[in-house]
């Protein structure tokens, strides 16, 4: 008798269920960079799976335009992948295959409904049950992240198609939801979905800017107000939690940063600063890396923003930078006073 079977017998537990629970999602607690590698691999496999399904439908079933049958096939593929994940979560190859096929199934459903209805909004709506199922299953955070990402990408595409320039403000809609889910997590683990809410709209903005370089980076006041509210919430959280003068000075610096960035900087940059403040609040290195990369990218992109001259942009950046350096100086001064009373 193995140690686990013995242990379960003593406590009256189902040893098979216990073994499955222990083995479930061997990569669940894997570091984020490992999950990133596996996620990129899953996208590649999902693309190959989509190509294969297209070949089957086109050559064997003579379906040359995606329809409800394709969407149904996507649902079957998704369900089969979830089942595979439930029974063989511990297998590296089966887990990878299941995650990739679930992602491909979601995309197939979106294409099937979207093309037959000739509507990107319908495609986005079709992905919602899949996203809900991906959140409901608790075997694989990577699957949750990828399927929610597909739903977000299709939603962003629908919004972009409908309103064009509003796309740069989508970060302001998704950011509060992602931040709230991470700060106040529900009983079910939704961290991967929350991360998708924080990351995918940022990436969508980057892609949108690359495809349409003339599009303005400036955003409307509603988006600025939302970013400011997120900053204020994070600021409040740090203010309440930290009692020392030093920590409060740092929080005050965050407040100044919030006002300056939300009022002056582009939308993506303001969202990146929110990520940095959230990283500090939660103690998340992953969010710190993502926030720093996004911040560098959006300042780089700010250079090409045609809305204002380089002179205006330089004055904005120098002003924000000087304000932050002033905050840093105040903080350093306080620290020196503590060391040399």
């Amino acid at each position: 008798m193995t140690a686990l079977t013995e242990f379960c017998a003593r406590l009256g537990l189902d040893s098979i269920a216990a073994a499955a629970a222990l083995a479930a999602g061997a990569d669940d607690d894997a570091p984020w960079y490992m999950q990133a590698v596996l996620g990129i691999g899953a996208w590649v496999t999902a693309i190959a799976a989509l190509l294969f399904v297209w070949a089957v439908l086109y050559f064997i079933f003579d379906i040359d335009e995606p329809d409800v049958i394709v969407a149904g096939l996507g649902a079957v593929l998704f369900a089969a992948a979830l089942w595979l994940l439930q029974v063989r979560a511990e297998g590296a190859f089966t887990a990878h295959g299941a995650i990739a096929f679930a992602t491909a199934g979601t995309i197939l459903a979106a294409i099937g409904i979207g093309v037959s209805e000739d509507s990107l909004w319908s495609a986005a709506a079709a992905t919602l049950p899949f996203a809900a199922a991906a959140v409901w299953q608790q075997r694989s955070p990577l699957l949750q992240f990828l399927v929610v990402s597909v739903a977000l990408v299709v939603s962003v595409a629908a919004a972009w198609d409908e309103w064009g320039r509003v796309v740069t403000d989508i970060t302001a809609i998704a950011l509060p939801a992602g931040v709230a889910l991470l700060l106040y997590p529900p009983r079910r683990d939704v961290r991967a979905a929350a991360l998708a809410l924080l990351v995918v709209p940022e990436l969508a903005t980057i892609v949108a800017l690359d495809l349409d370089p003339g599009m303005t980076l400036w955003h409307g006041w509603p988006a600025r107000a939302i970013h400011l509210a997120v900053f204020a919430a994070l600021f409040h959280l740090n203010w309440r939690r930290l009692v020392t003068t030093r920590a409060r000075l740092l929080a005050l610096a965050g407040g100044v940063l919030a006002i300056a960035s939300a009022a002056l900087l582009p939308s993506g940059s303001a969202a990146a600063l929110s990520l940095l403040l959230l990283a500090y609040t939660l103690g998340s290195r992953m969010l710190a890396v993502l926030g720093a990369l996004a911040e560098i990218y959006f300042i780089w992109e700010f250079y090409a923003d045609l809305q204002s001259t380089l002179l205006t942009k330089s004055i904005i950046l120098m002003s924000v930078g000087a304000a932050l350096l002033l905050c840093y100086g105040l903080f350093a001064l306080d620290q020196r006073r503590k060391v040399e009373p």
Binding site: A247, L310, L317, L324, F331
Partner: peptide
Amino acid sequence: WTRWGRRALLALGAGQFLAGVVFFFAY
């Protein structure tokens, strides 16, 4: 994270200020 916050503040301030200087002369 207190140390990180302090360094992040310095990096953001210095980075944005220097980017502003580069933009100014690129103008």
